[in-house]
Simulated assay, not measured.
Amino acid sequence: MRYRILGGTGMEVSAYCLGTMMFGMAGNPDHDDSIRIIHTALDHGINFVDTADMYSAGESEEIVGKALQGRRDDVVLATKVHFPMGGEGPNRGGNSRRWIVRAVEESLQRLRTDWIDLYQIHRPDHRTDIEETLSVLTDLVQQGKIRAFGSSAFPAHETVEAYHVARQRGLHRFRTEQPPYNLLARGIEADVLPTAQRLGLGVLTYSPLGWGFLTGRYRKGQPADLSQGRAARAPQRFDPSIPVNAAKLEVVEELVKLADELGRTLPELAVAFAASHPAVTSVILGPRTRAQLDGLLKGATLTLDDAVLDRIDELVPPGTNVYHPVGLWSPAPLTDPALRRRPLGDRAAS
């Protein structure tokens, strides 16, 4: 296993990070089996574990907390905050001081730990001033509850804004960014990754298997089973009759040929590709089963040379997306009607 420094924090993390989104009711509900998978990853040299409070409504954090008993000091533990957690009301989520102060305490309890190594803001919140968010995160560092903090799915311009606000106000700054990145979604190469390099941010990439399209399970000309797993929850993302899915399948066929030439599987090629970019610190692997973890770990032994990377560039040009990754930032004025329409009471009478 290779190790790299995380965003100038001095913390050394494995080049592959264990993502735990699939542990709990959203994926693998068997706590004992999930704990065994976590232990297997640690035994193979992974010392970086990533979760989030909203994964299976806190259940993932609970599983991770149980798994790390007796091994906590050897693990760099990351979690996230932003999405609503239980109950109803307008103030049970977001990036405000009010919510983060409460959410971090609940995460610490579920994780059975006194500190979080990397606390990440799961998504931008355009209702909250970034100075407010950086201020409370700085306080949490000073209180010893977190060691460092980062962002997830932030656009490059908001990363730059946060950097300058931190400098101007004398606050701690984001040390990492966690974006989606894979063979079919290379859009972040255009701005997010270069920005991270210039600002010295560590980068944890997620979704290396492109929401399942890079597992080899979905192939052109083969009937797609839309009744199981992720396909059952979101069939429109897998239906081959939809143009964007057909485009993915076209590229997948060529990538399978390339993987075969290398004597590797498509998932191994996909994982190795994500780790090959110089801006990427660690690639998040999100297995649901032990077999899936074993397959992904094989990609850790693969290094792609320039000839292979050139072949990939011909299939999916650098900085482009075959599809828009799930969860990737979209311009707020385009997605929030409140930011592009005047309130009814502000309109002139007809």
Rank of each mutant, 00 (worst) to 15 (best):
199 L>C: 13
212 G>W: 03
202 G>M: 04
215 T>A: 01
211 W>Y: 13
220 K>C: 01
198 R>T: 14
191 D>W: 03
222 Q>I: 09
196 A>V: 09
196 A>Q: 10
189 E>C: 11
186 R>G: 12
205 T>C: 06
185 A>G: 14
198 R>M: 14
189 E>L: 10
221 G>R: 10
213 F>S: 11
191 D>V: 08
198 R>H: 13
194 P>T: 03
202 G>A: 04
212 G>Q: 00
188 I>N: 03
219 R>P: 03
214 L>T: 13
216 G>Q: 10
211 W>F: 13
193 L>R: 06
213 F>W: 15
211 W>L: 14
202 G>V: 08
194 P>M: 08
210 G>V: 07
193 L>N: 08
216 G>F: 07
214 L>F: 13
185 A>S: 15
201 L>P: 12
185 A>F: 11
187 G>E: 11
212 G>I: 03
216 G>Y: 08
187 G>K: 11
190 A>D: 14
204 L>C: 13
188 I>R: 02
204 L>P: 04
189 E>W: 05
215 T>K: 01
191 D>Y: 08
216 G>M: 06
184 L>S: 02
213 F>P: 03
200 G>N: 03
207 S>H: 00
186 R>L: 14
201 L>N: 10
199 L>Q: 14
197 Q>H: 12
215 T>P: 01
186 R>I: 13
218 Y>G: 09
215 T>S: 02
195 T>G: 02
202 G>Q: 04
204 L>H: 12
216 G>A: 08
203 V>L: 11
208 P>S: 04
209 L>V: 02
222 Q>S: 11
205 T>N: 05
210 G>K: 04
214 L>A: 13
200 G>W: 12
187 G>S: 12
195 T>N: 01
187 G>T: 07
208 P>K: 01
192 V>M: 06
209 L>H: 01
206 Y>D: 06
212 G>P: 03
215 T>G: 02
203 V>Y: 10
193 L>H: 06
188 I>M: 06
198 R>W: 06
215 T>I: 00
216 G>H: 08
196 A>Y: 07
216 G>N: 09
209 L>C: 10
212 G>E: 02
217 R>M: 07
218 Y>K: 10
195 T>D: 01
194 P>N: 04
202 G>D: 01
212 G>S: 00
196 A>H: 10
191 D>G: 05
197 Q>V: 06
196 A>T: 10
186 R>Q: 12
221 G>Q: 09
217 R>F: 03
218 Y>P: 09
187 G>M: 12
